[in-house]
């Protein structure tokens, strides 16, 4: 039986996490289909059809799916799932929202945020904020899995020529409706797929001081992240939070500025290739995971770093 991957997108552009999820599906093996559920999302379907290794793209283009409301999209996916061995979605806030609802409709357990595929029924996933890695085996007839994008190298976004098939939507469930959205606008790269990430913590002291990090980020073409303490204090918006309960990042270079390195923060960034920590406290736990540590006052060294780049 084939594997169904649920595409992540904003109705206009296919999100990179889809490619990582396809890569995880390829490791399981078998025919690969991608579902694009959305509204006015034909460009997304065309991009999905170009992903190398995808045999078929299913498009459910319906106003009911415009915002991927779980109440509307879960019945659609659960209905389709019966013809598949596995259903995979990125562990984005969308995937985390609708996928458990799909699993429960199918009466199967979900396997959350896998980081490795051992075989078609066995997977690895972090638990306890990444302080332990569990190997789990599922005997469910349909395996419903969310995928940690940073753990899988992206599948090629070009080279495929899948067929595109339109599906009829299942309509509105009528229990929830979309009111509005406040989306962060930024010219910087997206946090979870950026090659370089610079994150600030409580040590930054204010939202204005985050300007130091933005200036540095613009020099490096980097995305800017934050610790929970910085978000809670209002220095940065919630979508910048890196950690166990925020975003998971694994860039080539992660620079932690004024962040102590609580386990919940480390859970979101310790798989970065190279970690730099700037902190005035030589005992800060962040130095235990840093490849390069600089014990210094950030207000002195961050502007200096920007100048020297």
């Amino acid at each position: 039986m084939a594997i169904l991957v649920i595409a992540e997108h904003d109705n206009a552009v296919l999100a990179a996490a889809t490619l990582n999820t396809v890569a995880a599906a390829q490791q399981i093996g078998g025919d690969l289909h991608v579902l694009v559920a959305g509204s006015g999302c034909s460009a997304v379907a065309e991009s999905a059809a170009k992903i190398a290794g995808v045999a078929k793209v299913l498009v459910a283009d319906d106003a009911a799916y415009a915002h991927l409301l779980a109440e509307n999209v879960a019945p659609l996916i659960a209905g389709l799932a019966k013809g598949y061995s596995h259903v995979l979605a990125p562990a984005s806030t969308n995937g985390k929202n609708y996928l458990p609802r799909v699993a429960a409709l199918l009466d199967v357990e979900q396997i959350s945020e896998i980081v490795a595929v051992e075989s078609a029924d066995t997977f690895k996933r972090p638990i306890y904020a990444g302080n332990a890695i569990a190997t789990v085996q599922s005997s469910a007839p349909i395996k419903v899995i969310s995928v940690r994008a940073t753990a899988f190298d992206a599948a090629a976004g070009e080279g495929g020529s899948a067929s595109i098939e339109a599906l009829a939507g299942a309509g509105e469930a009528g229990t929830s409706s979309f009111v509005g959205e406040e989306l962060a606008k930024s010219d910087r790269p997206e946090l979870t797929s950026a090659r370089v990430v610079i994150s600030g913590g409580r040590g930054l002291q204010s939202g204005e001081n985050f300007g130091l990090l933005y200036a540095l980020a613009d020099k490096l073409g980097a995305a800017v992240g934050a610790s929970r303490a910085a978000v809670d204090a209002g220095f940065a918006p919630n979508d910048m939070q890196v950690g166990q309960t925020g975003k998971i990042v694994a860039p080539d270079l992660y620079i932690a500025v004024g962040i102590s390195g609580a386990i919940q923060h480390l859970a979101g960034m310790k798989d970065s290739k190279v970690i730099v920590a700037i902190n005035k406290d030589a005992e800060a736990p962040i130095f235990q995971v840093a490849d390069y540590g600089l014990v210094a006052d950030l207000f002195e060294v961050v502007p200096e770093l920007e100048k020297q780049l």
């Binding site: 789990v136 310790k270 770093l305």
Partner: peptide, 23 residues
């Protein structure tokens, strides 16, 4: 349950890094 935990391991430890003296 249809889910069985086969084993639980510690994550790969990062190699200890170095402290640099200047920017």
């Amino acid at each position: 349950s249809t889910l069985k935990t086969l084993k639980v391991e510690a994550p790969a430890e990062r190699q200890a890094g170095i402290k640099v003296g200047s920017v």
